[in-house]
């Protein structure tokens, strides 16, 4: 049980797909304008990851080694199309606001990467845990970026129920007059992510310096 939890924690912290591995940035930067979009996209990617990881892990011994990548692409494309239809039916407002980025989950490097490096070599339960971990890590990273962009860019936070667009779960508005609306533009997305990565790199460098000081003593 403990190693399954370790796999999940791995996807959230140590190998976070956006902050550490820098995969799947296309959709992450484009979607993160509001919390609702972030949660919706995170849900979609987690669902696709779980479906594709479980299916690939189940049939991993039946796939000839030479045609691995094409088989993965076909399975992932089918999973994404299912998710697209489900979102069109159950979350229509989210479907229109996410737009073309739902089909673009197919070419998201995270899903193909996890399929190739984890699901094709491990058991079904381990692949399920890995998918959950990676999905949660992706959603968490998206939430952090969108929270910063929405808070500083529009001066408030708001979250709408994805399944029922008329139901606002919360809507806070802290300040309107000094909101930096650059952060709601595309360039704001780049700058936000750059600053977050710089902060994480700063923490990593500090840890390395501390370890080196400890070794010298």
């Amino acid at each position: 049980m403990k190693d399954k939890l370790n796999i999940i924690k791995n996807g959230i912290i140590k190998e976070n797909p956006i902050f550490i591995m820098l995969l799947g940035l296309c959709s992450a930067l484009a979607i993160s304008t509001s919390l609702t979009n972030a949660v919706g996209m995170g849900m979609a990617v987690t669902f696709v990851l779980i479906m594709s990881n479980v299916i690939i892990s189940t049939i991993r011994h039946l796939i000839p080694d030479e045609i691995r990548i094409p088989v993965f692409i076909v399975i992932i494309a089918t999973a994404v199309k299912c998710v697209q239809f489900l979102m069109n039916a159950y979350t229509p407002a989210l479907y229109t606001s996410l737009g073309v980025f739902i089909p673009l989950i197919v070419v998201n490097c995270i899903i193909l990467g996890r399929a190739e490096s984890f699901a094709s070599k491990n058991s079904v339960i381990d692949s399920l845990c890995d998918a959950i971990g990676m999905g949660l890590g992706y959603t968490l990273a998206l939430l952090i970026i969108s929270a910063i962009r929405e808070l500083i860019g529009t001066g408030g936070l708001s979250f709408v129920n994805p399944f029922n667009a008329t139901q606002t779960i919360f809507r806070f508005s802290f300040f309107k007059s000094c909101a930096i609306s650059l952060l709601t533009q595309p360039s704001g997305a780049f700058i936000t992510l750059g600053c977050i990565l710089a902060y994480l790199q700063h923490r990593r460098l500090k840890k390395v310096i501390e370890i080196q000081k400890g070794e010298r003593k």
Binding site: Q185, S187, F190, L197
Partner: peptide, 22 residues
């Protein structure tokens, strides 16, 4: 600055380019 070397400064440069395109 050390914390910005590599990917962070590249992303910020891309952000400035995006501003210019705007």
């Amino acid at each position: 600055p050390e914390a910005f070397r590599g990917a962070p400064i590249a992303l910020i440069s891309a952000g400035i380019m995006a501003c210019a395109i705007c």
